[in-house]
Design a protein around this nucleic acid. Structure first.
Length: 476
DNA sequence: TTTTGAGTTGTTCGA
DNA sequence: GTCGAACAACTCAAA
C-alpha cells in the first residue's frame, strides 16, 4: 500500500525515519508551506531564504533516487488528507515536532486522516529523545539543565543513523505539485537582496550540511572547548541552521563527533543536549515563546523604547562587541553564541527592553531561528528562564570584548570603521585620546556612536529593576 | 518525608 | 596584577 512522507523539519534523506518507514513501497513525498497554521511563528525572513534553497536541494536528492517532491502552499490540515486519499495511502509518516502550533496541527491532521481510515505516524527525527519520554525520578519534566543532561548521557549512545534509501518508487496517481518558485519564499522588496551575502557563508541542503559537519569534525572539534568562545575564529560548528531544518539529524552529529574523538561528556555533545533541553522545555511549557517561565517576571518593569531597540538592531549601540554581533547577524543570518549572550544581555539588562523584542528580531534575522532554542535562550539571558543566570550577572560588554576578542579580529571585521584603533581602545573607543581617534580616522558621534548608555549606569539600573521585582514578590 | 548538594557561559571590590 | 569573596536566596533532583 502506498505511503505519504510529509517533510517538515527534516529536509534530508539520510537518517530520516519517516522516509525510511515509507520507502519499502510506493510513496509520495510532500512539503506544505502552511504559514497560517504557524501564525506569528511562521518562518522568519532569513529562514525563508534558507528553506527555499533547502527544498531545492531536497528536490534534487529525491529526483536522483527516482521520486519527486510534491510542493504545496496552504492548510496542511486539508492538503495532507487530500493527497493521502489521492494516492490511496494508508499511512502518513512524518517527524515529530515540538512547536505548540505544529502539535495542534498534527492532532487535527491525525483526526482528519483517522476519519477516513488512515493514520499519521510520527517518528523521532529532529531530536535524540522524545521530550515526553524524559522524566525525573519523580516522573516530572526536567527544569534544570545539568540533571537533564546527566539523564541523557546515562541513557547511553543514541542509535546509529539510518542509511539513505538507494531507490524510491513513486506512487501512481499523485497530482502535480507547485513549482518551488510558487511558494514565494524568497523575500520580496522593500528589502531586496538583504540576503545577498548568505551564499558566501552557507550552503543549504543535505550535502552542504554533511560537508560542514565533516569540516567541523576535522578542523574545529579537537579544540572546541578552548576556541568555541572566540568569535573571531571558526571555533564553533556552524551547524545550527542545518540542524534547524533537519538537513542532518542530531544522531548524525553525535556519532560524527564521537568518531572524531569526542569523549565522555564532551563540551560539544553538551551543546547538542542544550538543544534537546530547549525542546524538552517547549514541549512541557508551550507558552515559553511568549511568557516568562518564572511567573514573577510578568511584572518586570521593562521600559519599551523604539529608538533604543532600533539602535540595537542596527548595531549602533556604541559597544563594539555588541555592534559587531548585530551586524554579523544582519549580514550572515547568524551570530556567534558568545556574542548572542553579550548582545542579549545589553538589550535586556542595560536597556531594559523586553526579551520578547530581542527574540522577535532574532526570529526574523537568524537562519537558525528555532522556536525552542530561541525562546529558551532569551529567557535564560533575561533571568526568567527555567535555569537562568542569576539576576546580578550583568555582562560588561567591554570586559567581554577584551576577554573573548582580545586581538580585535571580530570587531575589526564587522565594525570596519573602528579597524584602525589600537587593541587597547578597540572595545572602548570613548576612552581613546582625541589624537588616537584622529589617527584611526574615527570621529565619535559621527563615524561611530557613543555608548547608548554607560555600563555602570545600565548595570545599576538593571540591578534596581530586579531588586524591585523581588521586593514586589515578597510584598505580594 | 527530609536532607543534601548543586546550579552554562560574570563582575566588582578589597586585600 | 592576582586572588578570593560577595553578590541572594531558591528550587530542583536525587538519595
Amino acid at each position: 500500500m502506498p505511503r505519504l512522507v510529509w517533510f517538515r523539519q527534516d529536509l534530508r534523506i539520510a537518517d530520516n525515519p519517516a522516509l525510511a518507514a515509507a520507502a519499502e513501497g510506493p510513496l509520495l513525498c510532500v512539503y506544505v508551506l502552511d504559514d497560517a497554521a504557524a501564525g506569528r511563528w511562521a518562518h522568519g525572513g532569513a529562514q525563508r531564504w534558507w528553506l527555499h534553497h533547502s527544498l531545492a536541494a531536497l528536490e534534487r536528492a529525491l529526483a536522483a533516487r527516482g521520486a519527486a517532491l510534491h510542493l504545496a502552499r496552504g492548510s496542511a490540515r486539508e492538503i495532507i488528507p487530500r493527497l493521502a486519499a489521492a494516492i490511496g495511502a494508508g499511512e502518513v509518516h512524518a517527524g515529530r515536532l515540538t512547536e505548540p502550533w505544529a502539535r495542534a496541527r498534527d492532532e487535527a491532521v491525525h483526526r482528519a486522516l483517522e476519519a477516513e481510515g488512515r493514520r499519521l505516524v510520527l517518528h523521532t527525527s529532529s531530536l535524540l529523545h522524545e521530550p515526553h519520554r524524559i522524566r525525573t525520578g519523580q516522573g516530572r519534566p526536567y527544569s534544570v539543565y545539568t540533571p537533564f543532561a546527566r539523564a541523557l548521557f546515562a541513557l547511553g549512545e543514541p542509535p546509529p543513523p539510518l542509511p539513505a534509501p538507494a531507490r524510491l518508487l513513486p506512487a501512481p496517481g499523485a497530482p502535480e505539485g507547485l513549482p518551488l518558485a510558487a511558494l514565494g519564499l524568497i523575500p520580496a522588496p522593500p528589502i531586496p537582496e538583504w540576503w545577498r551575502e548568505f551564499p558566501a557563508h552557507w550552503t543549504p541542503g543535505e550535502a552542504g550540511a554533511a560537508e560542514r559537519l565533516a569540516r567541523f569534525a576535522r578542523a574545529a572539534l579537537p579544540a572546541y572547548g578552548a576556541r568555541r568562545n572566540t568569535p573571531g575564529v571558526e571555533g564553533t560548528s556552524g551547524l545550527s541552521p542545518h540542524l534547524r531544518f533537519g538537513e542532518l539529524s542530531p544522531r548524525q552529529v553525535w556519532h560524527a563527533a564521537r568518531a572524531a574523538g569526542a569523549r565522555g561528556e564532551d563540551a560539544f555533545l553538551k551543546e547538542i543536549l542544550w538543544r534537546e533541553f530547549a525542546h524538552h522545555l517547549l514541549w512541557h511549557r508551550p507558552d515559553m515563546p511568549e511568557q516568562p517561565l518564572q511567573q514573577g517576571f510578568a511584572r518586570f518593569p521593562w521600559r519599551p523604547d523604539a529608538a533604543l531597540l532600533r539602535a540595537w538592531r542596527r548595531g549602533r549601540t556604541g559597544y563594539p562587541i555588541v555592534d559587531a554581533g548585530m551586524r554579523q547577524l544582519w549580514r550572515m543570518g547568524w551570530m556567534h553564541n558568545r556574542v548572542r549572550m553579550i548582545a542579549g544581555s545589553l538589550l535586556v539588562k542595560h536597556l531594559l527592553q523586553p526579551w520578547q523584542e530581542g527574540a522577535a528580531w532574532f526570529w526574523d534575522t537568524l537562519l537558525d531561528g528555532d522556536l525552542a532554542s530561541n525562546s529558551a535562550s532569551w529567557q535564560w539571558v533575561a533571568g526568567c528562564g527555567a535555569d537562568a543566570a542569576p539576576y546580578f550577572r550583568v555582562f560588561n560588554p567591554v570586559l567581554q570584548g577584551e576577554k573573548f576578542d582580545t586581538d580585535g579580529a571580530y570587531v575589526r571585521r564587522w565594525v570596519p570603521e573602528l579597524a584602525r584603533l589600537p587593541d587597547r581602545f578597540l572595545h572602548k573607543p570613548w576612552e581613546a585620546p582625541e589624537a588616537v581617534l584622529r589617527a584611526a580616522g574615527v570621529a565619535l558621534g559621527r563615524d561611530y556612536p557613543r555608548p547608548v548608555i554607560q555600563h555602570g549606569e545600565g548595570r545599576a539600573r538593571a540591578l534596581a529593576a530586579y531588586a524591585a521585582l523581588r521586593g514586589a514578590a515578597e510584598a505580594a
